[in-house]
Nucleic acid binder design. Structure first.
Lengths: 235, 235
DNA sequence: GGGCAGGTTTGCGCTGGCGCAAACCGTTGC
DNA sequence: GCAACGGTTTGCGCCAGCGCAAACCTGCCC
């Protein structure tokens, strides 16, 4: 599982961190990358680990979850192909603030702290991309903080679902399918509620025909209805 | 209030964004800066505004608050001298995601989007500082998201107070004073609860002698007790 | 094909903390 | 000195949604 796979250059070019950079830079990026294929349910890193690396997901899906001082967990984000993860501690205290676990078999590339700084110094567009990526993430987390503080559970679940659709929705004949396998527990931890409430709400929506949930896969059939819930003012 | 004040060079050098940069760079930074003195309760920018600038606070204090679709507000952060604010939209969609209002008379410097990008391109250490600043913020917001999803109100208020102490605590004869003027409402919106709950909790702590609240100023006398509340497992 | 394990649904009771409303207090300005 | 205003405290009632527990479903492995 640590064996380097053969890798198409486009695969790395599709990572958000390396958008619009020169072929020469991309070449360096590829030379330094450590690429690994990981089975599902593999822990890539744990909260508190040191020796951090910058990770990019090429194929598959990953769940980033942070646990509080007591047992409770929240899902910080799900990672789809092309996205970076585990980059925050590179610029702060050098400890991962959350766990990363593959949801499905995945292909992941990573670079050490020193390598990434080297690349950023040599190719400023990479540094700019880092800023853009982190900035986008910051805005998203701020929005979620606002939601979780001000909105009812049902609205939060609705927004969580819509966020997943936007991030990883594939249009199919039956509606928009989310490509991650999602247990109720994951949806709950991602919307800041309990397994039970999430289950009740999703079941209700399924009964209403707004979505279908089969085998940990969600397919949204009436996104407009869910949007309506998400936007309902707190009456 | 738009008149440029005379400005000591150290004032800008003390901004977190311009730590450890060359004198030449600092000189450019200073030339481009727009400096303004603002009375208290001035709106620096509003949620949704375009024409964003990067702001740095030299003196005074600022509250950054985001309002949800309904009326409810949350305080994203308070700004102490030396800190940057309003920088997120530079790297995302070009719209401020929150309001910024001075809590006290303040002295603020700012740069346009073009100027900041110019400076980052010319002096890479500034770009690195941007990353460091945003990274730290991202981690902090993630921690808060985790707290607000998993902890009881009392713990959240405790953590909010401790966070303020760490950020803006001045040791005095009577204990550690927080330099911002804080209404109960501000504390509530910063810990993700209601005015009423925050008031009850702070009053209880004052009765216990853990802190003193006079004239919108908080002084912490028994930080250790508050720490204990913050860390209490959710029993 | 049968059993097992992990995931899901659902009922029921309870409680944290929110919402409302009214009184209170301290500052500021006239 | 008085009035007005912004902020704070406090009591009371209520309900969203959590906790627990038990049954149920479904895919997987032996």
């Amino acid at each position: 599982m640590t064996a380097n796979d053969r890798l198409a250059p486009q695969a790395l070019a599709s990572l958000e961190l390396f958008q619009d950079i020169s072929p020469a830079a991309l070449d360096d990026v590829m030379t330094l990358a450590r690429v690994r294929r990981l089975p599902r349910e593999t822990r890539i890193f744990d909260q508190g680990d040191t020796g951090v690396r910058a990770h990019g997901l090429i194929e598959g899906s990953v769940r980033i979850a942070q646990s509080g001082s007591d047992g409770a967990q929240i899902v910080m984000r799900f990672i789809a192909p092309g996205e970076m993860f585990g980059t925050v501690p590179l610029f702060t205290d050098g400890r991962y603030p959350a766990d990363a676990i593959t949801l499905t078999e995945s292909l992941e590339a990573s670079w050490s702290e020193a390598e990434l700084f080297e690349l950023m110094g040599r190719y400023p567009p990479i540094a700019i991309n880092v800023i853009r990526v982190i900035g986008k993430r910051l805005q998203e987390v701020q929005d979620r903080l606002c939601e979780v503080s001000t909105q009812r559970v049902e609205q939060r679940v609705a927004r969580a679902v819509l966020r997943l659709v936007r991030q990883a929705g594939h249009d199919t004949r039956d509606g928009t399918a989310i490509e991650f396998p999602l247990r109720r527990r994951d949806v709950a931890d991602f919307s800041g509620t309990t397994l039970h409430s999430a289950s009740r709400i999703l079941t209700a929506w399924e009964k209403a025909g707004w979505l279908v949930s089969r085998n940990q896969r969600l397919t949204i059939r009436k996104p407009f209805e869910i949007q309506r819930i998400a936007e309902a003012s707190a009456n």
